[in-house]
Design a protein around this nucleic acid. Structure first.
Lengths: 151, 151
DNA sequence: CCGTCTTGGTAGCATGTTGCAACCAGGCCT
DNA sequence: AGGCCTGGTTGCAACATGCTACCAAGACGG
């Protein structure tokens, strides 16, 4: 087959995550969902994505348990897409990508959308990778413990 | 055009990050690089990716400043691919995806590769999104401050 | 209800991208 | 020199993406 390679049986959690999200559009849909988008049209306008693509991505996200399709909150007969707990758990992923992007792809002072603490209106603290006892870890401080896949 | 949509001029850092990484293979290449892979053949065997795809992804990652192509460390005439500081800064992204995958795509007790603290051999602490003054934030505690794109 | 607008899609087609397999050049090794 | 390893490139078939047009059901004013 020439289908896109799947990673859903990999023993690496990163690979399975990547596989579950599906593609980059999906991640931007999730980003918009965190930002309050709920309706098909909201996602479509915000992303500028073709409607057939959006339809397909929303479907796979719902099938994957990241989004749920629920009756509209305004009483109309339309449906809305909201994050499930599993989808909400992607928050650190989005924040990590956001911080990496801010750091590396914007000139100083270049305007960009910014995620802020609602209470103080201040930007967030940079994510830190910590050991169990709270030491800050760099990539060199860690190693991957490989697990043999059972035959 | 029917080319894949690009996000490199979006005002959202998440979109620019997504655009810079390019596709999922690239992220898995970066994961392997954190895990110590350096040579073309190492990536190829580890990922099982077609060589032409790997060639293309390595090239875009080098062009994007995530990897650097350096002379081989063993004195041979071959080249190696190592993470730049910009690439190393993806560490929290990989860790976030890894933790999300561990949490959501493995049955309890199912074997999987694991990222551990080299000093203690223990798994890492879960990433936390914190406010500037150290409060732990959920998605609901944050909001995106939109910035108008200058015309 | 009746016509019309909005919402949320589907269908068809051109083009781009992916993956496989075959091939190949230059390093390395004895 | 001969043969194997490494690190690719090339060609092709299948699949995915994006665009535009179309469409059905819900909302809505009269």
């Amino acid at each position: 087959m020439v289908t896109r390679t799947r990673f859903d049986d990999s023993d690496c959690p990163v690979a399975r995550s990547v596989d579950a999200i599906g593609d980059w559009w999906s991640l931007l849909i999730v980003r918009d969902a965190f930002d309050g988008s709920r309706r098909f049209g909201e996602f479509q306008r915000s992303l500028g994505v073709a409607k057939n693509i959006l339809t397909a991505r929303l479907r796979t996200l719902v099938e994957g348990g990241v989004l749920a399709s629920v009756p509209a909150s305004d009483g109309s007969a339309y449906r809305e897409y909201v994050l499930t707990p599993k989808g909400e758990a992607l928050f650190p992923v989005i924040v990590a990508l956001r911080q990496w992007g801010e750091e590396n792809f914007f000139a100083p002072g270049e305007p960009h959308s910014e995620l802020v603490d609602r209470r103080q209106g201040r930007p967030l603290r940079a994510l830190e990778v910590l050991s169990e006892d709270g030491r800050r870890l760099t990539p060199e401080d860690t190693t991957v413990h490989k697990v043999a896949r059972p035959e």
